[in-house]
């Protein structure tokens, strides 16, 4: 059966750590980092990258447009 695998690229310097992407992500791929960027924000990152399905929900709701999404069909 074909399976979809996704990946997100997050511009962590521009992320303001609002967490809206984290709660929107259906497979709970994303989380806020313990580290902060140069502005002091806990930026978003793919804590569980293998779970990403490339649905783009995170990128669509991101107020700052910092997320780029890719996906492939495999199998």
């Amino acid at each position: 059966m074909a399976k979809i695998k996704g990946a997100v690229v997050i511009d962590q310097e521009r992320c303001k750590g609002c967490e809206v992407c984290v709660v929107t992500c259906p497979p709970q791929t994303l989380a806020l980092a313990a580290d902060v960027n140069s502005k002091g924000y806990h930026f978003s990152y793919a804590a569980n990258p293998e779970t990403c399905i490339g649905c783009s929900n995170c990128a669509v709701v991101c107020p700052d447009g910092v997320i780029t999404v890719y996906k492939v069909k495999i199998g």
């Binding site: 695998k5 490339g54 783009s56 990128a59 107020p63 447009g65 780029t68 999404v69 890719y70 492939v72």
Partner: peptide, 30 residues
């Protein structure tokens, strides 16, 4: 996965590179 042919979502080309002044999580940016 992160190859141009697999690109699914990217912010619009009409958005400039300026960092928006809005507070974190503000709906204006969206």
């Amino acid at each position: 996965i992160i190859k141009p042919e697999n690109l699914t979502y990217k912010k619009s080309k009409l958005m400039t590179d300026n960092v928006m002044h809005y507070c974190p999580g503000c709906g204006h940016g969206t």
